[in-house]
Amino acid sequence: MRLECCRGGVSALVQQRSTDKTAAERAEASDEDSRLRDRLVFGDEDAFDEVYERYSALVYTIAVRVTRDDRAAEDVAQEVFLAFWQRPFAFDPAKGSLRGWLAMIAHRRAVDLVRREEAHRRGTQDPQLSMAALGGGDPVGDQVSDADTTHRLRIALRTLPEPLHSAITLAYLHGRTYREVAKELGLPEGTAKSRLREALRRLTVALSSHTHGSGDVTDRTERHPAAPSSGLAGEGRKGTSRKAQP
């Protein structure tokens, strides 16, 4: 049963994504992350500055997107970096990249804040409009955001079937749990769970598709007629930020 469950497409696609980055590249990136982490353990302030230089845009952007409040986003970003300085061992290089970990912590803190303090905002946003923000924003051209990835993500989001699009928007941008997603979209919880996983899976494939294709994640059978084939990411940032001026 256990094997059966793992034989599906996800594992195969995940594997494709994993092998996309060569083992050597991954090992090298992981060594660099380990070293930065260790330098923080050894109280090296220059390492702290380096972490901030590399990842502040990533962390701040996630915080802005989710909180839609530039002051709150600053607070979230500050807490993410201070927490890493204070407890560097919380990051385990064996479990993934520093980039992925900081993004996770930023998103989690932003979502916690939204869930805690801004419940009243919920339901007032149009998921379609906010979704556009995922691929939008002004690339700053730093080390964390290569324009190619942003471009591929934008295309991938634009072509994601609407049911998956709505689910991932509600979860990622609005901080909804999958149960809340299910309720809002009138779905069984199991379906909400699988849509979130499927959406992420397709984006994963699209992001690794520079060697395989254009980044279009639609397939003919699943494409939702209501999903616009273009313009989602291009619809700009309206509705994404109340106070932030990106």
Binding site: A57, R65, R99, G100, A133, V144
Partner: peptide, 16 residues
């Protein structure tokens, strides 16, 4: 892998 993808979802990066 899915975490790494989720890290991209912030989209184009904004300068703090």
């Amino acid at each position: 892998t899915l975490r790494e993808t989720a890290a991209e979802l912030g989209g184009g990066h904004l300068r703090p």
